Amino acid sequence: MEALISQFTFLSNQACQDKGFDPYAIEDLMKLFEIEAYKSWAAVELEQEREVEEAEITMQKAEDYLDSAMEDAMDEFRMFEEEMVRIEKEEYGGLVETAEKARKMGKFMEKAATFASNKYIEAAMNSASASMKAAFKGVSNRVHPS
């Protein structure tokens, strides 16, 4: 491009000094400027495409990394969830077992209380009966047949 500008400066000076200067010489130079501009434009466009491709590659790598990180996080979450379910089942099983033992103990205590209360009633009735017999004997010994 600098060579073309030097050539243009040279031709401009020549056009100013020489009355027989051929203007088509500048036109040819202008075509060279146009060709050089297209080449520059094509180079810029090619550079832009290369940068776009690099950006797409970088973006794909970032997406892959994000996908990998998300997959790792989901795997970790699944393992945590499975562990929580396992612990939950163990605790639930322990609670059911404890509740069953408490129910059996309650039934046993109910039977023991029923048995004890029946024995208490039986003892109270025997005591009352013995007291009544003793009282009846005491009353019958004091009564004279006359």
Score class of each variant (00 low, 15 high):
Met1Cys: 05
Met1Ile: 06
Glu2Leu: 03
Glu2Tyr: 01
Ala3Lys: 05
Ala3Met: 08
Ile5Arg: 04
Ile5Val: 15
Ser6Asn: 11
Phe8Glu: 03
Thr9Ile: 07
Thr9Phe: 08
Phe10Met: 06
Ser12Arg: 11
Gln14Tyr: 10
Gln14Met: 06
Ala15His: 01
Ala15Val: 00
Gln17Glu: 04
Gly20Pro: 01
Gly20Ser: 08
Phe21Gln: 02
Phe21Val: 00
Ala25Tyr: 05
Ala25Thr: 06
Ile26Gln: 01
Glu27Met: 07
Glu27Asn: 08
Leu29Gly: 03
Lys31Tyr: 08
Leu32Lys: 03
Leu32Asp: 02
Phe33Met: 03
Phe33Lys: 00
Glu34Leu: 08
Tyr38Thr: 02
Tyr38Gly: 02
Tyr38Met: 11
Tyr38Trp: 13
Lys39Ser: 11
Lys39Ala: 09
Lys39Glu: 11
Ser40Pro: 01
Trp41Cys: 11
Ala42Gly: 00
Ala43Thr: 05
Val44Leu: 14
Gln48Trp: 05
Gln48Asn: 13
Gln48Val: 12
Glu49Cys: 07
Arg50Ser: 14
Glu51His: 06
Glu51Ile: 10
Glu51Gln: 12
Glu54Cys: 05
Thr58Leu: 15
Thr58Met: 15
Thr58Arg: 10
Lys61Val: 05
Lys61Ser: 15
Lys61Gln: 15
Ala62Ile: 07
Asp64Leu: 12
Tyr65Val: 09
Leu66Ser: 14
Leu66Gly: 08
Ala69His: 09
Ala69Pro: 01
Ala69Cys: 14
Met70Val: 12
Glu71Phe: 06
Asp72Phe: 03
Ala73Asn: 15
Phe77His: 15
Phe77Trp: 03
Phe77Gly: 04
Phe77Ile: 10
Phe80Lys: 13
Glu83Val: 08
Met84Pro: 01
Ile87Phe: 04
Glu90Asn: 14
Tyr92Ser: 13
Tyr92Gly: 00
Gly94Met: 11
Gly94Ala: 07
Leu95Trp: 05
Glu97Asn: 06
Glu97Val: 00
Lys101Glu: 01
Lys101Trp: 04
Ala102Thr: 07
Ala102Glu: 05
Lys104Val: 05
Gly106Ser: 12
Gly106Ile: 01
Lys107Phe: 01
Ala116Ile: 04
Asn118Cys: 10
Asn118Gln: 14
Tyr120Phe: 15
Ile121Trp: 13
Ile121His: 14
Glu122Ser: 14
Glu122Tyr: 07
Ala124Tyr: 04
Ala124Cys: 09
Asn126Met: 09
Ser127Cys: 09
Ala128Asp: 09
Ala128Tyr: 03
Ser129Ala: 03
Met132Trp: 07
Lys133Thr: 08
Ala134Gln: 12
Phe136Asn: 07
Ser140Asn: 13
Ser140Val: 11
Asn141Ala: 13
Asn141Thr: 09
Arg142Pro: 00
Val143Met: 14
His144Ser: 14
Ser146Lys: 14
Ser146Ile: 12
